[in-house]
């Protein structure tokens, strides 16, 4: 296994294997905290920190972890960084901490992180593992932000707390309730699968066109 870092390793998580829109992982924090764009971004950054740090550490220790205790080791490592993030957010803003509630601690069981540790970091040197983790977390961040911004715009008429429609805006209460999360996620999934299919159709048309000419 060479230590070369491919561009694909980075972009994989952002688009082709996007954890939210393609793998549909990590839905629990996704649906619960994306009530506003700021909450979503904080969650995204917290997950990013945990994912990158834990991937690095797991990758560093990959040669000495016996496979019988690997899950336990990964969980301990992940939990450590989650605790660190927990303290950091408390130190930055208590308000944000209250808004995110238990979901900071629940990053421990976010399957994206354990999945990356198991599938990628434990098999690759630290640099590619971190790059891959960074790409994944950017993908997750994009997903969270896509949900959070739509829900905040419809649910409160604001984006990052800035009013978009003036004071007469009628908030869609359902968007800040849990069902709203499902609706918006469904909408985005629909959008991305439609895009994917269109791309595929264009490719087949191109192929058909080429073979027709030949």
């Amino acid at each position: 296994m060479s230590a070369t870092v491919t561009w694909d390793e980075f972009t994989e998580g952002i688009w082709r294997q996007n954890p939210v829109f393609v793998m549909v992982l990590g839905l629990c924090p996704m649906l619960a905290v994306t009530v506003s764009a700021v909450n979503a971004m904080t969650m995204g950054l917290a997950t990013m920190f945990v994912l990158v740090c834990s991937s690095a550490l797991v990758s560093l220790m990959r040669k000495m972890v016996p496979k019988e205790v690997r899950i336990a080791t990964y969980i301990v490592i992940i939990a450590t960084f989650v605790t660190v993030v927990d303290y950091l957010i408390q130190a930055v803003s208590l308000e944000l901490y209250e808004a995110l509630g238990a979901f900071i601690q629940l990053i421990v069981v976010n399957c994206i992180i354990l999945g990356r540790a198991e599938a990628h970091a434990s098999k690759n040197p630290p640099l590619p593992a971190m790059i891959n983790a960074l790409g994944m977390s950017i993908g997750f961040f994009i997903g969270l932000f896509a949900l959070g911004s739509v829900r905040e715009i419809l649910g409160a008429g604001t984006l990052f707390g800035v009013s978009l429609f003036g004071s007469g805006f009628q908030p869609w209460v359902i968007m800040v309730l849990p069902p709203g999360g499902f609706f918006v996620l469904g909408g985005w999934l629909l959008f991305f699968s439609w895009m994917g299919r269109r791309k595929q159709r264009k490719q087949t048309e191109k192929l058909a066109g080429v073979s027709g000419h030949a």
Partner: peptide, 22 residues
Amino acid sequence: VGMIRTLGLVSAICGLIIVSAY
């Protein structure tokens, strides 16, 4: 032995990180 060594090492590193963050 390997398991105990690894877990012990991991715990030590993690404990260190947590305490310093705290």
